[in-house]
């Protein structure tokens, strides 16, 4: 049990096994995420990094271990997970905007229905957020009318509209055309600079190096090494990390 008040997510011995232990997507992951940290999770495909991230808000159900979010065990069936998810924004690789709703409605549907915000207040807040990411003029567009980079920026502010305590990013730039990666990373960078706690699975090593406060390297469902970006990238200890970095850098 961590006595540190700053710990916002505490993960203990997290396991996700399929087929009765034959496949181990997560095999005992333990880590603490503190307030204001920007944790970037890297690793080869199949290393369990996405499963780890998706476990944090229970989109994947772990088969063992515990996750404590703001002092509450979210793996306990009696915990109201819907309530806790409202404080954990999530951004997906494929954006997952709601195609039948306008950009503005995408952003206001959750705050109005879940936080009981009035439509006016929710829209005001949504427009402020849109302004920040430079998309105020697309408020009444439908997702189909946006480019990939625009969609992902909207997806980020949609999550932010719920004023979450943590933001989870699941490979947010992997489905984008190369020229659109920059605009999304820029928004994420601003968010990090504003002090948001972030957990981010990504292949963007530049982003990890520049923005992360801590980098976690995962392989075979375990955390192999975790350290500051400088140490990870300039002084890797583990052989698998060295091999991985050699391939991606």
């Amino acid at each position: 049990m961590s006595a540190d008040n700053n710990v916002i997510i505490s993960v203990k011995d997290l396991k996700k096994h399929y087929n009765g232990g034959e496949v181990k997507a997560l095999d005992g992951v333990t880590t603490d995420i503190k307030k204001g940290e920007v944790v970037v999770v890297i690793g080869p495909s199949g290393s369990g990094k996405s499963t780890f991230l998706r476990s944090l808000n229970l989109l994947e159900r772990p088969t063992g271990g515990t996750i404590t979010f703001e002092g509450r065990d979210i793996t306990d069936p009696s915990t109201n997970i819907n309530k806790l998810r409202q404080k954990m924004g999530m951004v997906f690789q494929h954006f997952n905007l709601f195609p039948h709703l306008t950009v503005l409605r995408n952003m206001t549907i959750a705050p109005t229905k879940l936080h009981g915000l009035s439509k006016k207040d929710a829209e005001k807040k949504a427009l402020e957020l849109l302004e920040k990411v430079g998309l105020k003029d697309r408020a009444n567009a439908y997702p189909s009318q946006l480019s990939g980079g625009q969609k992902q920026r909207i997806a980020i502010v949609r999550a932010l509209a719920m004023t979450p305590d943590v933001m989870l990013f699941d490979e947010p730039t992997s489905a984008l055309d190369p020229e659109m990666v920059g605009e999304v990373l820029e928004v994420m960078k601003d968010l990090a600079n504003a002090g948001m706690t972030m957990v981010c699975v990504t292949h963007e090593m530049g982003f990890a190096r520049e923005v992360a406060t801590r980098v976690i390297f995962m392989d075979c469902g375990r955390i192999i090494e975790e350290n500051t970006p400088e140490e990870i990238f300039t002084n890797p200890q583990n052989d698998r990390l060295k091999a991985f970095l050699q391939k991606v850098l």
Binding site: R85, Q86, M90, F92, H94, N96, L114, R158, M162
Partner: peptide, 14 residues
């Protein structure tokens, strides 16, 4: 798409 369901749930909708 399954992602639509996940997006709804991740915002906190039951």
């Amino acid at each position: 798409d399954k992602g639509q369901f996940e997006a709804g749930r991740s915002l906190g909708f039951g």
